[in-house]
Every structure is written in C-alpha cells, then in structure tokens.
Design a protein around this nucleic acid. Structure first.
Length: 589
RNA sequence: GCGCCGGUAGCUCAGCUGGAUAGAGUACUAGACUACGAAUCUAGUGGUCGGAGGUUCGACUCCUUCCCGGCGCGCCA
C-alpha cells in the first residue's frame, strides 16, 4: 500500500486527457505515461506569457525514440483546440497550454467559491499514521525552541489531514527525571519567595534554571556531597511515589501542565493522546528485563543494552547499572504502545535533529525486537532555534519564554498598527485582532524556513512584520474581506469568466488553480514551508491584480461581478491556506 | 576519528523527485495615498550558486573529494 496522489485538479485532468489522446495517436502501441502521471507533470511555465501549464516531454523521449523537440511538435499537431484548450505551442521540449478563461473560471474559481475545491481527496492509500510532537519537560521553561516544534507539528497535522491522510496526534512530556529533582531541590532548599498566583509554570521553570546553575557552581566545593545527598533523597521519594517531595511533584507538575495547555490553547493544538514519561517509566524497564531474560539484550559493563555495532550504531544502553532506564528505554515501550494500542501503520517523531542517532538506534532496536512497523518509523528532524549570541542556555540566562514572545508580539501589533483604530474599534476587537495577527507572525515565522535550516531568533527582527510574513498574507485577506463587504459580493450571481482578460487576472487564477497541488506536495514531504511560500506568492499576485484592475469602478457590471468573484475566491484560498498553518484569517486588521 | 545538517545577492532565505534566462524578502536608490485599506505597490543597484573533479543532451539540484560552520557519538533527556 503505497500512497498515491490522485488526479484532483480539473484543469490538469482535462489537459492530461488531451495529451494522453494525442500520445495514443502519435504512438498507438506504447503506453508510456498514464493520465495521472501527465496530470502530475503539468507545471506552471517560468514565464507568464508562455501559457498556463506546461508539459515537458522528456520522459517520453526514450520510449518514442525521438528527440524532445520532435515529440512536442508532433503532439501539438494532434491536439485540437476546443472549449478548454485555447492555444497549444511547442517550445523546444515543452508543450505550452493556454486554457480558456471560461474553463479556468468554471474549473477553478467556481469550485473555490462553492467550497468543492476544498473537499477533494488528494492522496489515496496513505497508511494510518501517528505523529508525536511537542515533547516539553515539566519543571523547565517553555521557550521559543519549543515553539518551532509546536508550529511545525500543528501545520503538518493540518496539512496531511486536509490531503486525506489519517493522522493521529500525540505528545510525550517529560515529567520525571533529574530536571524535576533539581527544580524541587532549589525550591525547597534555596528559594525563599513564594510561588506567584499566576504564571506558576513559568516561575517553576526559573526554579529549575536556578537550581541547575547552583548545582553546577557548587560542584567541586564542600557543598557538592550534601547537594547530591539531597537530590538522591528527592529522586528516591519520586520513585517510591510517596513522601513530601512526591506530593510537591504532583502539585508542581500540574503548574507546568497548566502552562503547556495554555500554550496549546493559544496555538489551537489538541492532542489525541497524551503519553507521560512517568507512565511508561517502570513499564519500560520491566519490558527490557523481559527482553533480557529472553536473550534479546546483553549485559555490558554492568549495564544492559543492545549491541548495534553491526548496524554501525554502536551500543544502545537500555538499563543502567543501578537498574533504572533511560530516555531510549521509554521510547521503546512507548513505540510498542503506539503500535499495539492504536494500531498505527506509520509513526512519525517530530524531534530536533540532535536526536538523530537516538532515533536511528530506537528504530533499529525495534526492528531487532520484532516490530515490523519499525521500518515505517520516521524521525522528522528539524534544526534548532538559536539566539544571536548562540544557543539558549540557563547559564547565559538568555532563554526566551514562549509567553514572552506571544505577549511582546501582541503588544507590538497593538501599538504599531492597531492604534490607528482607537475609538473606532472596541477593546475586545482590538485584543482579538492583535492575538490573531501575533499568531500569524509567530507561526508563519516558525514554519516558513526549511526544517533543515537553523533559526537565529532575534526578537527585534521578529517584531518588524514587513515583507514576507504571516501578517502580509493576513493583510491581503483582510483587504479582500473588506472589499467583498463594501462592494456587496453576491455568490449567486453568474459570472462571465471570459471577461477576465488582464494578465494579472490570469496569473492569479493560475495560482489559485495550484492550491491543492501545492498542498498535496507539501503534505507528502511534511513541508509546511512550501505552504508559506505558496500563500505569499498568491498574496503578491493578488496585490498586482488589485493594483491593475479596478473592481468597484470596473467598466461594466459584468466585469465587476467577475472580478469581485475572483477576489472573493482569492480570499477563500488565503483563508484556507492560512488555516493549514493554524493561522487565523482576520476580517479586518 | 566516525556520522548527521548547513554553506545561493551586503543580510535572511526560495529554487518541486536534474530541465526553458538563478528568484524573493530585507537593506540601499528613485517613484506611487482627495483612490476598492500604503501592514501595500512600481522600477533600479546587487550572485564565479563554498572550491575542484565527474556523470548527463542538460547540474544550484546526482556522485567523488577537499574547505568552512553547527551538532551528535555508553550509564543526561
């Protein structure tokens, strides 16, 4: 069962049928390309004047034993002009098609306006998939690095679901481990201030940072032994699930969870499954002991693990010499649960690229332990978020909490842009729009770059929202919304699409045509950045159209109707596309 | 030492599984609001695609090698 893209685009399908037919007349006995393949091969030519869609005949050369230019010339002869094909030209190895505006309107603008365009299934036979993303630790700070993961994960989920892939979501917060002990240790032994009434989660993160630093500073001093003793005592209580530190863990853990949930709510993220490290912890160790007794694991230097040196992955430690497990141990138990409990066929892990080796080992271990689905486990890696002065660290004290970014972005939007509507808008409207635009800036900013690229986060740069940005796309949408509102768009009015004769109009329609093509490709490659680029391009094309073509004062009522419909359709595409990134499309801003 | 990821215009990045003249944003310069919203638009300046080989009709894209930067390699997560 391999996923396949369907022939979802009506314009491409229409052309593909005609090309296929021509191909049959040129080479009657050879089936060289299926209609679906031709559909997928149709691309926008580099130059707008060349046409709407181009077909490069390269793949046919071998089978037809002809040079590409000869093939395109021959095919051109066999393609008749009709109500769809307005013009065909053979340009070297390419066949350039100009589609009649009437056909474009019927096959693109109308389906967008009545919503049919967005109901198509783009990919078939996709395996039932689970994606795990956002794996923050409790008791630590939630910073802008976590934001990238969250935005990417959310966008991938929305895109893939839109394309027709069954996608189940899960998160795996780290609520046990030494970081918890460090936070509690500092809180209990060194902190004197009470926890604040609001923002307990953020405050707890600071407790961890301070604890971590103090412990580091005191290593090598007489204090060290005492610190270790205290930490061990805390960890023991947490493990035995009793005592004052266990109670404190439960209380403080909830503070962190409340913070996570607040951020998830802000982002519009909702997980189907919440897996906790504390939940898989002991089960994972038991599972490893079972595997060890079955001879699937080996003892080495007092610890237990799996020798993966034959796979060039070294030795994978699974049970420490003190009998406890590690991160990898839990990941194996968790994978087992995903496979068995949820019956998934494919498993995605959106985790930063530093874990590449870890996941290679986990997947290989799963394979050796007999999990067939291991071959369909994929680590979706992304590069991390840094600051201009290097990596974020407690030591440098330069960690930027997620909530800081959100609040500063909202404040900037209000002060620099929304202030002009003072007196005109209510405070509630002001706040709502500020939140929407801030989301646009943050989410677009986090997803627009390829995942392999490092993000150097500079708050001041981020607050300058000009040029290619989420708000740029949102602004185009808001302007269209305003236009539609003012000019009174009537969706029942029949439009004569052939009136759309301006090059800017054609270019825009052509762009709208490829919405599903772009989304299908982005979804299959798990590349939200492709959606960003597409939306930005559409917004730019709209801006040109908007500048070139008067709508309200169009020459005739018919032209006005057609243009308004085109604008409205563009608004729908932008809103839908932004939605795939989890970004709201405000009606005004 | 081995491995992973980057190296495209001053800066930040696109460039789809090799294909039609390397594109945007930003910065800079010069223009456009009594206009359907200027968070906008138009034009210009700016690149030996890290270096060198190779494969191909064709390479930013694939292969080899080297250089620069980041990260990862057994009891942290």
């Amino acid at each position: 069962m391999t996923p396949t893209t369907l022939m979802h685009d009506q314009v491409r399908s229409a052309l593909a049928e005609r090309i296929e037919k021509a191909l049959k007349s040129v080479a009657p006995d050879t089936q060289v390309m299926t209609t679906a393949q031709i559909h997928d091969a149709l691309v926008e030519p580099p130059n707008p004047e060349m046409g709407d869609l181009a077909f490069g005949v390269f793949p046919l050369a071998k089978a037809l034993r002809m040079g590409p230019p000869q093939i395109s010339a021959k095919l051109k002869e066999s393609i008749a002009l009709d109500d769809v094909v307005e013009k065909v030209e053979a340009a070297g190895p390419y066949l350039n098609f100009t589609v009649s505006m009437r056909a474009l309107g019927e096959k693109v603008i109308a389906p967008v306006l009545n919503g049919e365009m967005f109901k198509r299934k783009l990919i078939a036979n996709a395996p039932k998939t689970m994606i795990e993303y956002s794996q923050p630790n409790t008791h630590k700070e939630l910073h802008v690095g976590h934001m990238r993961n969250l935005c990417l994960g959310d966008a991938i989920v929305r895109m893939t679901r839109y394309a027709g892939i069954e996608m189940i979501t899960s998160t795996f917060p780290g609520d046990v481990g030494t970081h918890v002990a460090k936070a509690l240790w500092y809180m209990k032994f060194h902190n004197s201030e009470p926890a604040p009434v609001t923002g307990k989660g953020e405050w707890l993160g600071q407790m961890y940072s301070k604890g971590h630093l103090l412990l580091e500073d005191q290593t090598g001093t007489p204090q060290e032994a005492k610190n270790r003793e205290q930490l061990t005592m805390i960890l023991k209580q947490l493990e035995s699930k009793s005592g004052e530190y266990y109670d404190l863990w439960k209380e403080t853990r909830q503070w962190s969870i409340d913070l996570m949930k607040r951020v998830y709510q802000w982002a519009g993220v909702d997980f189907d499954y919440w897996y906790w490290e504390s939940d898989v912890d002991s089960a994972s160790v038991q599972l490893m002991q079972k595997y060890f007794s079955e001879g699937k694991l080996v003892k080495s230097e007092g610890a237990i693990g799996m020798d993966l040196s034959a796979d060039n992955l070294g030795f994978m430690l699974l049970i420490k010499s003190d009998g406890t497990g590690l991160y990898a141990t839990k990941d194996i138990e968790l994978a087992r649960r995903k496979f068995n409990d949820v019956k998934i066929q494919k498993s995605l892990y959106l985790v930063d690229m530093r874990q590449a080796l870890h996941f290679k080992q986990v997947f290989k271990a799963l394979e050796h332990l007999g999990f067939e689905q291991a071959k369909d486990c994929v680590h979706l890696q992304y590069n991390f978020v840094e600051l201009p002065d290097g990596a974020m660290s407690s030591r440098k004290g330069n960690i930027i909490p997620i909530t800081d970014l959100i609040h500063r972005m909202e404040d900037t939007v209000k002060e620099q842009y929304l202030s002009r509507y003072k007196g005109e808008w209510t405070d509630a409207e002001m706040n709502e729009v500020a939140a929407q635009v801030a989301k646009g800036a943050v989410k677009y900013g986090m997803t627009r770059m390829d995942t392999n690229k490092k993000i150097v986060f500079d708050m001041n740069e981020w607050l300058k929202i000009e040029g290619e940005s989420g708000p740029f796309v949102q602004y185009s949408h808001a302007r269209i919304a305003s236009l539609v509102r003012k000019l009174g768009y009537d969706s029942s009015a029949k439009a004569d699409w052939s009136l759309l004769a301006d090059p800017s109009e054609r270019r825009l329609v052509r762009g709208l045509m490829s919405f599903n093509v772009e989304v299908a490709m982005a979804a299959q490659g798990y590349k939200p950045a492709a959606i960003c680029a597409y939306l930005y391009e559409i917004a730019k094309r709209f801006n040109v159209f908007y500048h070139e073509c008067p709508i309200g004062t169009a020459a005739t009522p018919e032209l006005r109707t057609a243009r308004l419909a085109l604008a409205a359709a563009t608004g729908e595409i932008l809103a839908k596309g932004l939605g795939l990134l989890g970004i709201p499309a405000p009606q005004k801003m």
